[in-house]
Amino acid sequence: MRRSPLLLALLLTAFAGCRGVPSAPPARPAGANASAPSKGVIGVSLLTLANPFFKEMGDAMQAEAAKRGYTVAIVSADMDAARQKDQVNDFIARKVAAIILCPADSRAVGTSIRAANQAGIPVFTADIACLDPEARVVSHIATDNFAGGKLAAQGMIEALRGKGKVAIIDHPEVESVLQRTKGFREGIAGTPGIQVVAQLPGGGMRDSAYKAAQDILEKHAQLDGIFAINDPSALGAAAAIEKAGRTGITVIGFDGQPEAKQAIREGRLYASAVQFPDRIGRMAVEAVARYMSGEKVPAETLIPTALYRKADAGKDPALK
């Protein structure tokens, strides 16, 4: 019998650590928000929280939701489609007012969205679209990735003065990234002086992109530019170039994360097609709020990118 108090203590510590659960039995609803004047909970499952892009998007959602009287519950799918399915099921069990998803897999997410549809919970997607035609998504808010890829291509053409060999570090599992590479390839197609000599998957993360870039550099002694589909990949590529002691390789990223902007200022990256994750997050919550108050919302909202170069970094007050 002496053992059970310890067991209980352990359990309680586990709970106390995660949320301020009141120690008295719940006279008031312990569902936290039931007594608050919240208009409801918006369940959000982001692709990952290891990438600052999604962190920024989540923070913007939180701020916008607070302004509009909603609460958000943000979870990270850790790029795992099966985990995201579980998270959506949890949202359905909680009966959230609406769900915002950044799909971990544009196809597999369809079954989860259909389950939410059946439960009468509206689903919105942010940044990454759902490609299952049978799943009902109220509204999709994302960067115009295709145009962003073309913009990056323009930056590349300008940096290489229309002539050179370039490589692409991509991450073809993600639909939005496919659009970027498509845009980039189309953007440089009109400049015959520029050739794409390699296209390798970099996993969308710095460490794996670093290895991909090392392989590209190993194989191509003559290389003038690398287009990386996001900033972590671009920073990984830049690190590989520095380690190999190569110079004169133009690296262009995508996202506009603070660390990448700093690297652009230092000249390690040439440019980045800046996305506005805060605007995506804000507009996604705005779409939910407008829809819930009975307004019609557009099926798709695309947010344009801007090319951020050294000159912009020089004027950026956020950089020191």
Binding site: G17, C18, A73, I74, Q87, A93
Partner: peptide, 25 residues
Amino acid sequence: IRNGMNLLDVEAYAQKVVLGLVILG
């Protein structure tokens, strides 16, 4: 544990910590 934490709005980062500690415990 995972489901309960999702229902209780435990922050995503904290979930991993709790899960790890519970396994250890």
